[in-house]
């Protein structure tokens, strides 16, 4: 465990020194500030537009971070051959995958938390009430972000970074759809589409922007169960990534 921790810290340090990370983090912050400056036509005066749009902006930011951070971690290590001394001596392949994931997940989590805090600040500055459900909402965003990170990491072991990004984006869009919306994509083949949808993750479970924006209490059990679901999917994708990487020859 301490080996994975040390490698995760090394990954974290390396990622925070990349321009990609700071670029995505800053662009998302600017977008959040932009949302804060749009006049709200909200008759209720509760900043619902800001919360809804802000949380959505953070979700997109975490998707971009997952792609930006994880899609070229292994390809870069392989091309620069820096993976050789790592795997030859101190690390096993499982530790490599878990360490890389944990490092990137820490960076992504920190970014999401900072973005959520900024959204809270923007709401407060604009004189709106910061809903209590912002924290659980941001925890679900983290769970969704980790899942996306695991997906990108899995793709990175068998695709190139330029192919990884559209694949992840496609999966992200498709997984937002409810079964009804998904089967509606191909009228006449509902059964096939239903079966296909069952195999894909249900990322719509992480969407609690509406109740948060409308200040509707969401049961704690729902947050917990949705987080567990996200973690279970993340561990499944990571196990696939480890299985692929274990079988891979490093020429």
């Amino acid at each position: 465990m301490s080996t994975i921790r040390a490698f995760a810290l090394m990954t974290l340090k390396g990622l925070t020194r990349r321009r990609t990370f700071w670029g995505i983090a800053l662009v998302t912050l600017i977008a959040l500030a932009g949302i804060g400056s749009i006049p709200s036509y909200d008759v209720t005066g509760e900043g619902r537009f800001m919360i809804d749009m802000g949380l959505f902006g953070i979700e997109i930011g975490s998707l971009l971070l997952a792609i930006g951070l994880a899609s070229n971690m292994f390809p870069r290590d392989r091309e620069s051959r820096s993976v050789m001394p790592l795997l030859a001596v101190p690390l096993s392949r499982t530790q490599y995958v878990l360490g890389r994931f944990a490092g990137a997940a820490l960076v992504q989590t920190a970014a999401i938390m900072v973005w959520c805090a900024c959204l809270g600040l923007i709401l407060a500055v604009n004189g709106y009430y910061v809903p209590e459900a912002m924290l659980p909402a941001s925890i679900l965003l983290v769970a969704e972000g980790w899942f996306l990170l695991a997906v990108v990491l899995f793709f990175s072991f068998w695709t190139s970074p330029p192919l990884n990004a559209p694949l992840t984006l496609l999966l992200f869009i498709v997984c937002q759809m409810t079964p009804a919306q998904f089967s509606g994509l191909l009228p006449g083949a509902e059964r096939v589409m239903d079966a296909l949808r069952m195999l894909l993750p249900r990322m719509d479970v992480f969407h609690i922007k509406d109740p948060v924006a409308h200040r509707i209490p969401v049961p704690t059990a729902y947050f917990l169960l949705a987080s567990v679901y996200g973690l279970a999917y993340t561990s499944f994708m990571l196990s696939l990534a480890i299985a692929v990487f274990r079988r891979r020859d490093l020429k």
């Binding site: 036509y41 509760e46 619902r48 537009f49 919306q181 922007k209």
Partner: peptide
Amino acid sequence: GQSPPDGHGHG
């Protein structure tokens, strides 16, 4: 398919 930016949209 997000909710539109009015106060009470539910997606």
